[in-house]
Design a binder for these strands. Structure first.
Lengths: 234, 234
DNA sequence: AAAAATTTTTACATTTTGATGACAAACTCG
DNA sequence: CGAGTTTGTCATCAAAATGTAAAAATTTTT
């Protein structure tokens, strides 16, 4: 389970964020000052740091600089928390090496979505994998899908959809779940849209030679499932 | 049809929001004060609450706190309505446990999108368990039923019915109980309908090789029971 | 054995749900 | 800037699932 360090001088904010994150899928660490934060980072090596920009004495900036200057901590993803107004802070923060920022106030869900995105980026091994079922190959590194030697052309969304499905075969996902995992947790999209993209994906998987679309199965009343079972592939 | 409670002291605002929501999508309830709101919530259990933050006497905050502190209402999604300026209110609101916020003035379309997103989050996902009796396997994750290596095709209701029965074997359930547990507590359906679905389930469990339908047993005058005992399975 | 009670089947109208094609808005890339 | 993609939404069609009523079958009671 990924760990997140929350750096903010206000206890209330820390609590809120912790509440939101622990409900989901993260372990939380907390620090009320830049100094504490640095010790914890060195000690516990969290996967992501949430850093309030407005720490007393401008020490948030300093902490980021320091993290980026030391080999041990250079790679740790940092998300800035800033007030909405302070745009120049955002620019400065990104210059100093923050990986993302989020303006207060924010909805917990949005924060979670961004953390996930960062984790995905910083742990590429999770993403750049290669999945294969029969002759169907999805190569995360090259971002390509092959059926044997034939290149299958997919739109970005269809690619992500197939990636997600192939990553979790033999498992039904409701439209809501697919929206959360493939589209992202903070988007407002109709559930029926999933149907359409499933269709586009299937269409692309229908080759004159072989019909891979059977791998993407409808489970009436429940959602969709990727499964080689009973299709002749596997 | 999902119900939405609109809490705002200004009638004009309530009407506007209601208008936007009632376009054949949501049922609206209204409350002009925190007090009314609480009664309505307890009484009618709306699916989402739209809560104006600026209720007279700051009672919006109190209402949210109260909702979050009681078991009955803790899970109800709350969207805050706030004036654009009052950012610190948003932070406070999110701390107190609001699920989302939207600043006035807002576009109806956005409001609807957010409500829908919240709704799809709050609906429970399917049971992902696995039950096995003899060669008969029900896998909740993939939403499939096998008899040995043969796939059994069930409609959604038959699937839920079998899931429930396998979950509680050796126990008789009356038709009324089955309706409650499998169909849901507040649906009005004829009791005889259960018979029909039991029949459909049995039919599906009748394979040329093995007849699993004996597992679903009739208890005359009482209801039905799932039991491997004395059937040669188990 | 007839009647009554209860369950099983069948048949069918209605409702739900998913597939599909079309379209306009948003986005991308040269 | 524009031509070509990609995306989300909608309207429509087809298929599947559902609930009900009623007939048939079974078991229990009288």
């Amino acid at each position: 389970m990924p760990s997140v360090l929350i750096v903010d001088d206000e206890l209330a904010i820390r609590d809120m964020v912790r509440m939101a994150l622990e409900m989901d899928e993260f372990v939380c660490l907390e620090a009320g000052s830049a100094k504490d934060a640095h010790s914890i980072i060195v000690d516990d090596n969290p996967d992501v740091v949430l850093l309030d920009w407005m720490l007393p004495g401008g020490s948030g900036i300093d902490l980021l600089s320091r993290l980026r200057s030391e080999d041990l901590t250079r790679e740790i993803p940092v998300i800035m928390l800033t007030a909405r107004v302070a745009e120049e802070h955002i620019v400065r923060g990104l210059e100093k090496g923050a990986d993302d920022y989020i303006t207060k106030p924010f909805v917990p869900r949005e924060l979670i979505a961004r953390i996930r995105t960062l984790l995905r980026r910083s742990k590429p091994e999770l993403n750049a994998e290669r999945y294969q079922v029969g002759e169907l190959v999805l190569d995360g590194t090259s971002h390509r899908v092959f059926a044997g030697s034939i290149l299958i052309d997919l739109g970005p969304t269809e690619f992500r959809l197939l990636l997600f499905l192939m990553k979790h075969p033999e498992r039904v996902y409701s439209r809501a779940q697919l929206l959360d995992h493939v589209w992202g947790a903070n988007v407002y999209v109709e559930e029926r849209t999933v149907d359409v993209h499933i269709r586009r994906l299937r269409k692309a998987l229908q080759l004159p030679s072989t019909d891979y679309s059977k791998l993407v199965q409808t489970v009436r009343g429940a959602g969709y499932r990727f499964s080689p079972l009973g299709t002749g592939f596997s």
